[in-house]
């Protein structure tokens, strides 16, 4: 049994270690990389601190010593258990492993979202072709006026806003829409389905409206450079959102919360890649799409080329590592 003197002796003998640890912990927490000695020192200090805390809880419960040790132990625990930053290698791994894995998991969902978008677009097309007056529900007065005068609303956009600013506002908007399509999956996937259906519906309605005024080709010309990637990203974000909803409805782990968390972590890399592609897409939409100097073949090449790069990345082919057999074969050929 500890008596008062024992506790005091123990406390004064260990206090120096704690004091040093309090000093070290801040530098170790803020530093990007610790040396092996520092890391081993932290682990050793963690073990010692655990013993001290167990002792303090027993011999001096509800004292400041115990509270201080609890706090210190929590900090060292967080430090020891922190996830290392991957750096460039981590980013390459993300592209090589995490993104293709997530894309594979959600490929049926992407097809489903593409079908939903197509059906919604056809519905929007049919509605406006049948009831042209309803276009005022989807489009602003200014936009309707432009089209009725035989011009697309995108014409002369350079005169209103510089391309750089236009690109940034477009890419910010697209990223928000995609992230929202993913996050709306929390409402059991219904929020995402609504967002995708509405996007498809409005696209179909806009095409029907410009078609009635002989501008469908001009609109196609405008969107072909940025549209393939943009629409694909919306479908991907929608598919991940539905998967998120599905993870809550049909959990794959012990609890719905764990399932939701695992699903969010699985699809986060894919969403990051989508956001990066939307940045590029925004610049294409700001600089190339409204510029009449770009002929149709260039636009198609840019649009499809960019789309192919995206799919190559998603399938993992762009950063694929050789299998051992492939590497051996390549080496023999080289030798």
């Amino acid at each position: 049994m500890f008596d008062g003197d024992d506790i005091r002796r123990w406390l004064t003998s260990r206090a120096g270690v704690w004091r040093q640890l309090v000093k070290n912990i801040d530098s170790l927490s803020s530093g990007n990389g610790a040396t092996v000695e520092e890391a081993l020192g932290a682990v050793e200090a963690y073990r010692g601190l655990a013993r001290d805390l167990a002792t303090a809880r027993r011999v001096a419960p509800n004292t400041r010593t115990t509270a201080g040790l609890e706090s210190l132990y929590g900090h060292v625990h967080a430090l020891i258990n922190r996830t290392p930053r991957g750096g460039m290698a981590g980013f390459v791994d993300l592209l090589r492993v995490d993104v293709p894995r997530a894309a594979r998991q959600v490929r049926m969902g992407i097809i489903g979202m593409a079908m939903l978008m197509t059906v919604s677009a056809l519905a929007g097309w049919w509605l406006i072709m049948t009831f042209p007056a309803l276009v005022s529900v989807f489009a602003s007065e200014e936009m309707i006026e432009h089209v009725e005068q035989g011009h697309l609303w995108t014409e002369g956009i350079f005169n209103i806003m510089p391309s750089s600013i236009l690109s940034v506002s477009i890419l910010a908007n697209n990223i928000v829409v995609s992230v929202l399509a993913f996050c709306a999956g929390i409402f059991l996937g219904l929020g995402t389905l609504y967002l995708i259906a509405m996007n498809g519906f409005m696209l179909g309605a806009a095409f029907a409206f410009v078609h009635q005024h002989g501008l469908a080709h001009a609109l196609f010309e405008f969107i072909i450079a940025h549209g393939p990637v943009e629409l694909s990203v919306i479908c991907i974000a929608g598919a991940t959102g539905v998967a998120l909803g599905d993870s809550i409805i049909r959990p794959t782990t012990a609890t719905r919360r764990d399932s939701f968390e695992a699903c969010a972590h699985l699809f986060a890399p894919l969403l990051l890649l989508c956001a990066l592609f939307l940045v590029g897409s925004g610049f294409i939409e700001g600089f190339i799409s409204p510029d009449s100097h770009f002929p149709m073949p260039s636009r198609v090449t840019i649009g499809l080329g960019y789309w192919l790069i995206m799919w190559a990345l998603m399938s993992g082919r762009l950063f694929a590592k050789d299998s051992p057999d492939q590497a051996r074969r390549r080496w023999r050929k080289f030798a």
Partner: peptide
Amino acid sequence: VDDKAAQQSLARVEMLAAGSRLPLDALD
């Protein structure tokens, strides 16, 4: 909750305990 102040109090308790024969909880 990040109780940094509790860590700082360790130094104070050490200082008090070093020259005392009072029980730690009473001292605290």
